Amino acid sequence: MESLTDFPDPAAGHAAARTAEETARAALAGEGVHLMPPADVLACTGTDESAWARFTTHWDDLYEDEYAARRGTCRLRRYGHFSFMPATGELRLLPHTGFVQPGGTNPLYERVDRRFEPLTGAFVADPVLRALIGVLGRTAGALDTAERWSVKVHPFRVLATADGSGEPTPEGRHRDGVTLVSSLLVGRDNATGGESTVYGPEGEEMLSVTLDEPASLLLSDDRGTLHEVSPVRPSDAGAPARRDVLVTTLTPG
């Protein structure tokens, strides 16, 4: 597990969290993309070292993504769907169903009813996840007004060996058909690549960054942008590369 060094001082956490959320909202409303550094994410979610360590263990309990495997990528994942009310903070897990992306978004999987294993009960109950969804729900308010957010949660682990690269986004440049899309780096090991790029509607590059510090959070307005992640390869060819992320999307509804 990667260690974090800049855990927030509880006495200063509330002020730091307010500032971080205000900065994120302003950037999303103005530019459509924002990179929230780990210190801000930890402050906003009230996460300390032991809570982060517990949170990362959920990535050791994922299942193979058979759809990605058909294209030669070793990707592990689960999936969950929540309802979040920003006015009250109510978060409710919805019944487990297939995951379908709308037309005009994902060239590989649009309108395909993909079936993934549900989130574990421990993951659903984890305070870090629940706090993060709250942060995202408040931040998404800069893009749209919603009495209730539809929140879709995807923990991913991509593995790669010297014989083949791991593809975090085998579909290439795409949209998710949502309002806000976010990618939280949970960890990476022995990995090169995995550069996240957000593009404007005409294909212009808006932001390109390699999430390499745990708790880094990339946010973008999916309505007017596209995104992709470059292949992951091992730094040391004698061992596999690993990249763990949490992708969370929000749409009014």
Results as ranks from 00 to 15, higher is better:
L226Q: 12
T56D: 00
E66H: 11
A43Y: 10
L226H: 14
D60G: 12
L35D: 00
D221V: 00
R25M: 14
H174K: 12
E49H: 11
V247K: 01
Y79D: 03
E21W: 00
R173C: 13
V135P: 10
A17R: 03
A29V: 04
G200L: 10
D212R: 14
R92N: 10
L108W: 03
D9K: 09
P231E: 09
S235L: 13
S150F: 05
G203S: 09
E110N: 11
L42G: 04
L4Y: 10
R25C: 15
G166S: 09
R242T: 08
R233W: 03
L207R: 11
R92L: 11
L35M: 07
R148K: 12
G172D: 13
D212W: 02
R115Y: 06
R175M: 11
S83Y: 00
L185A: 10
T47V: 07
V186T: 12
L42A: 14
S182E: 07
T139R: 05
D176M: 03
G238T: 13
R71L: 12
H34S: 09
M206I: 09
V247D: 10
T251E: 15
L218D: 04
P107K: 04
G224Q: 10
L132P: 07
R223N: 02
C74Y: 08
R71N: 13
S235R: 13
D244M: 05
L62A: 06
V232Q: 04
P102Y: 02
